[in-house]
Design a protein around this nucleic acid. Structure first.
Lengths: 263, 263
DNA sequence: GATCTTGTTCGGTATCACCAAACGGGGTTA
DNA sequence: TAACCCCGTTTGGTGATACCGAACAAGATC
């Protein structure tokens, strides 16, 4: 009899799950990687088990190793770069949008990003860094809260109220930055305003000191397939520049939408 | 008694290997993904096994599914985008080089790429698409032959002869394009010339109709950490433009090298 | 509305993933 | 230079489990 027989283990391949634990440990392992013992303790398994998993991943290019003997260290391999590139290309949206994103970055002088919807969350699949020395390095592929980001709110604003309720019921409205909207009615008002003016504003709602402005991208059927945004430090942005940049972002989003056959 | 007891299975986690087979099948599965049955036949396992693996990967975000019931299809998930971005960022080279790569693309009007060495192969970790309508879409993270690409030859040219022999012994000198160098002595001569003028030229050696020009990037210890290159269609490039662009690529490579503290 | 195709569920068994402990080789210190 | 220590690598045994075959169910197609 299992101690807690919840059905979380149904159709779960345990050893694969453990291997994923190893991979995620390596992702957080930093530049110079992790030793076998460090991996084993990080994921809570025996040294030899971790070793077998690492060897298997190594042979497939999912981890790389440097050094040998007692100084050997493991880090993520380039197979992830390959598959990651395929994933972000698979939608097709990325190929169309990236050139315009580069234009937008040049025009606004700010880092810009491209995101899609994934299970209610906003996920960036493209990025063009701006010229500024400030390097707000937003990783690709990480899930971001829809209600606390410009890119998320831009996408939410294209949906019906029932769909919005369904999403925020699963993600919740957790506070992230000083101004995060944690109230449903306030969020709905903000989304209505977003839809009217055509762009979403995140004023320190996700991260203190950071302002984002985003706009949605539609496909030929009129459904939202993603959004683009620009990011700036609050103290570098004049208050009256927000509307100006908002219109700019909206214009580029419309261009991409048109390219996709949308209207 | 195993039929063929070669030690290829030492420290191999079979179920993990199978899961990787599934992942690679999905990578080739195209935009709209694969059904469970298609996955099972592609990797040669039972439907239910494939199902368990897919469910496990699904819960961790490594695959995504659309549809339900008999129309359900699976494709790669965004966790790969996240990890892939971390891998390409982990070297640190990418953060430094990408802004210059964008400049280079603008200056040359051509698609440019950034690559590193991986087990003797050249692997692209960054790319900036040029304005041309031709979209030579070189995937990131895929291993490319060192002797048949500008980016690979640029890196080889920084090594000693013994190191070069060690690498081409493992990769071989297979023909890829009309002008692939398949002879060791010819390759060594080409590499010496590459070292002298500072840039490598791939004149239809990897792909027919495609010309690449690359130059190496060094770190502060003077060892080669990667290379950059530009790609063009042969019929669009004047013969005398090669030297001109070669100097340009060399200059940007030097700039990146200097940024890394190299000399 | 009948039928076919395909995703999902279930149970048994041979396989194998996991652990503990031993081995061996660099790195470090005295 | 030599002894110690630490850590990656190897091995063998066993209890858990990954895999398969077959049955079930739910849409799609005509």
């Amino acid at each position: 009899m299992t101690p807690n027989s919840d059905n979380a283990d149904k159709y779960r391949v345990k050893s694969l799950d453990h291997a994923i634990d190893v991979v995620e440990a390596l992702a957080d392992g930093g530049r110079d990687g992790l030793a076998v013992t460090e991996v084993a303790t990080a994921v809570g398994m025996s040294k030899s088990s971790a070793y077998s998993i690492l060897q298997t991943l190594l042979r497939r290019g999912f981890v790389a190793s440097q050094g040998s003997g007692p100084t050997r260290r493991y880090r993520l391999g380039l197979s992830f770069a390959y598959l990651g590139d395929r994933v972000t290309s698979q939608t097709g949206l990325r190929e169309v949008a990236m050139p315009y994103l580069e234009e937008l970055t040049r025009a606004a002088g700010l880092t810009s990003r491209l995101a899609i919807f994934d299970e209610g969350y906003a996920v960036a699949i493209g990025r063009v860094d701006g010229p500024g020395t400030i390097r707000i390095a937003p990783f690709l592929g990480r899930r971001e809260l829809p209600h606390a980001t410009a890119i998320g709110k831009a996408m939410l604003a294209t949906l019906g109220d029932d769909e919005i309720h369904r999403i925020i019921k699963s993600t919740g409205l957790p506070a992230r930055g000083p101004n995060t909207i944690v109230d449903v009615d306030t969020l709905l008002r903000d989304l209505r305003r977003t839809a009217e003016r055509g762009y979403a504003v995140d004023d320190e709602e996700d991260t203190a000191g950071v302002v984002c402005i985003g706009a949605s991208v539609l496909d030929r059927t009129g459904t939202c397939v993603g959004a683009i945004s620009v990011t700036a430090l609050k103290h570098e942005m004049r208050a009256d520049a927000v509307a100006e940049i908002g219109v700019l972002v909206r214009r580029y989003a419309d261009t991409i939408t048109a390219e996709l056959g949308g209207r």
